[in-house]
């Protein structure tokens, strides 16, 4: 309030604030959650590669800084996810979040240098198609609003 008194030229700015901020949109939060989730998987793989291979629970991974970065990304992803769950049904939100199943293999190909055979490429394409089928009617709905 004080700043608008000092700078009256900005007085028109609050008009746009009436609309909910784009960052608070549940779908935006789903996307943020997806990106952090994929990042956390890559970071944990990077960390797990440095750790001992003898146990079935990966506690030894906690010695790696990469794993801790992965945990941080996972917490960020969870925060965005919980925000999205406030207004979206779980089955819709989760299906959209399945795009991580395409994003993770694609980024482990790009960033970790893992090899993707043809069959796996087709699988990745199917996952993307599945998410698109669910997302399309939602995008139309959002445009109407």
């Amino acid at each position: 309030m004080l700043s608008s008194e000092l700078q009256p030229t900005h007085a028109t700015a609050p008009v746009t604030v009436q609309k909910p901020h784009w960052f608070g949109n549940a779908y935006v939060q789903v996307v943020i959650s997806i990106v952090f989730s994929a990042a956390s998987q890559l970071l944990m793989k990077r960390g797990a590669d440095d750790s001992v291979h003898d146990a079935w629970l990966g506690f030894s991974g906690l010695h790696s800084g990469w794993v801790w970065l992965g945990i941080f990304a996972m917490i960020a992803s969870l925060a965005a996810w919980l925000h999205a769950l406030r207004s979206l049904p779980l089955n819709v939100a989760f299906s959209l979040a399945c795009s991580t199943h395409a994003l993770v293999p694609l980024s482990s190909w790009l960033l970790l240098g893992e090899v993707i055979p043809l069959k796996r490429w087709i699988g990745i394409a199917l996952v993307i198609a599945g998410v698109a089928v669910i997302a399309r009617p939602l995008v139309k709905l959002e445009e109407k609003l």
């Binding site: 299906s95 399945c98 699988g123 199917l126 993307i128 599945g130 998410v131 698109a132 089928v133």
Partner: peptide, 11 residues
């Protein structure tokens, strides 16, 4: 969508 995703995953 879910069936497509799962089929993709099986592949």
């Amino acid at each position: 969508g879910v069936i497509l995703i799962s089929a993709g995953v099986v592949l």
